[in-house]
């Protein structure tokens, strides 16, 4: 192992131990690691967004020779004057930092929100609403290509679970009698789904713990051998 990866391993291991120390109690080492993480993350995202988006997608298209030092492959492309518009809106957005001119940022904000709302509305409506309704409408008895008991039970669970769940959230009628019993079944469906979600969350956390323990094991076995 060379010096670079060796140092990376030590920094990673010490920061991991600092974070895990919170399980004992809150302490300055944990706070240090937490604050370092927040600061490094913010800086990382900003730098990456600049070099991988602003440079090739904005400046590299607006005036390609400008990015020749970083991306020589784009230098010969023809300039796209239309990119002035996103540049202008980007500058308007930054005016938020100047209290006297902050109101100008609303124009860029309005465009961003309007665009996002417009595109998201259509896509959500299609993928999360109409398609999901379509997924719920299915034959209760699965008989093609041959009868399937598992498929039939699955279809019944989906349809009855969806209906009872919807009934639970229907508040215009008092939950009494048959309606109340279906609503009660809806609560059980919700509780089962929450339980499944909790189980999955536990699995995720243990997976991450396993990953960290593997890393610490590697650190114990390799980290104390100084790179030669």
């Amino acid at each position: 192992m060379t010096l670079g990866p060796w140092l990376e391993m030590w920094i990673g291991a010490l920061l991991t131990l600092m974070i895990l120390s919170f399980l004992f109690r809150d302490n300055p080492f944990y706070r240090f690691a937490e604050h370092l993480f927040v600061g490094v993350s913010a800086a990382y995202w900003m730098v990456e967004a600049f070099w991988t988006t602003l440079i090739p997608n904005l400046f590299g298209k607006l005036y390609p020779p400008l990015v020749a030092f970083a991306l020589p492959a784009l230098a010969k492309n023809p300039p796209q004057v239309s990119r002035i518009i996103p540049l202008l809106f980007g500058i308007l957005l930054l005016l938020r930092l100047v209290p006297r001119l902050a109101h100008w940022s609303r124009m860029a904000m309005a465009l961003a929100i309007g665009f996002a709302a417009g595109t998201n509305l259509v896509r959500y409506l299609e993928s999360d609403f109409t398609s999901q309704i379509g997924q719920s409408i299915r034959p209760l008895v699965v008989s093609e290509p041959a009868f399937s008991l598992g498929g039939t039970v699955s279809a019944l669970v989906v349809v009855l679970g969806t209906l009872s769940g919807l009934v639970y959230f229907f508040f215009s009628k008092e939950h009494k009698g048959v309606f109340g019993k279906v609503s009660r079944a809806g609560i059980y469906v919700l509780m089962i789904s929450f339980g499944a979600a909790f189980g999955y969350t536990v699995m995720a956390r243990i997976s991450l713990l396993t990953g960290r323990m593997e890393f610490l094991r590697r650190w114990i076995t390799q980290g104390f051998i100084f790179p030669g």
Partner: peptide
């Protein structure tokens, strides 16, 4: 996906 996210995505299976 991570296990945390999996239950949110099962409704898209199998058509989408």
């Amino acid at each position: 996906v991570t296990a945390v996210e999996a239950p949110l995505l099962y409704p898209y299976y199998p058509r989408q």
